[in-house]
């Protein structure tokens, strides 16, 4: 028996919008810790890891660990039928091949049930080691989104370099080149508008902009984004989900031939 009641149902809607174009099918894992997902894109270039902690739900009942295989496009279709202010409850029964999404309007005058078929998915759970990163950049998520979008009109890849000068995003394409440098800026009205650069050592890595642009679909989930870079690891692009957890995207770098 599984029953998860999420008062801020829009969070789940936003999570699906952020993941459905990257991953087709995925197992949602439910345990005492929370509601989580780990999945790679079909080419194994990117990985998404989601955690919505149990404490963030108004009601969280999960009698035993359960894994539910879902087609994210179909799940998104169903969640789009929920209002932005609706409370969403996810319900499942042991051994059932369906999951139910219940939507309640804020004043309880409309209650909807959507039952979705589950699917068997061979999950490949990966161990993600705790790591020291060479540099961690925290910046407004809208700014990161703007940079990725702007650069993708010029080139296909971006070089992200962190030095003591700041973080530089560079691209080149048939029409020319572009460089955007963001310096640390803590003198802002609100903490989420700050750009904070922690650098242990300079780092420079190349990534496919197509994937970074896909990650920025998570922008509505958080005012700020954290980009963690190490020359030995995939970049981590993390959006914190207020009071609940996070969505993290990992992207393997381009490697010099």
């Amino acid at each position: 028996m599984l029953e998860l009641r999420l008062v801020q149902g829009s969070l789940l809607k936003k999570v699906l919008e952020a993941t459905k174009d990257l991953v087709t099918d995925a197992n949602f894992d439910c345990s005492a810790t929370g509601f989580s997902l780990q999945a790679m894109d079909s080419s194994h270039v990117a990985l998404v890891a989601l955690l919505l902690r149990s404490e963030g739900f108004e009601h969280y009942r999960c009698d035993r660990n359960i894994s539910m295989g879902m087609n994210l496009n179909n799940m998104s279709k169903m969640l789009k039928c929920a209002g932005n202010d609706d409370i969403i409850t996810i319900k499942g029964d042991d051994g059932s091949d369906t999951v139910t999404f219940m939507f309640e309007s804020p004043n309880q005058d409309k209650i909807s049930d959507f039952e979705m078929k589950l699917m068997d998915i061979d999950s490949e759970h990966l161990g993600i080691p705790e790591a020291e990163y060479h540099a961690i950049v925290k910046m407004p998520s809208s700014e990161f989104q703007r940079i990725c979008k702007d650069l993708s009109s010029i080139g296909d890849t971006v070089v992200i370099s962190v030095t003591k000068e700041g973080v530089k995003f560079s691209t080149r394409g048939d029409i020319g080149t572009a460089n955007i440098v963001c310096r640390q800026n803590k003198t802002v009205d609100k903490p989420e508008e700050a750009t904070i650069i922690e650098m242990n050592e300079p780092v420079s890595l190349t990534f496919a902009l197509r994937y970074l642009n896909s990650f920025t679909k998570a922008t509505p989930l958080s005012e700020s984004v954290t980009v963690s870079l190490s020359s030995e690891l995939p970049v981590v692009v993390e959006y914190k989900i207020a009071d609940m957890g996070y969505i993290r995207f990992y992207l393997a770098p381009k490697i010099e031939d």
Binding site: V45, A46, L126, A208, A252, K254
Partner: peptide, 14 residues
Amino acid sequence: DSKQGNILSFFKKI
């Protein structure tokens, strides 16, 4: 020239 790296070369299946 560069080639695209793969997540599975960084993270191992468990």
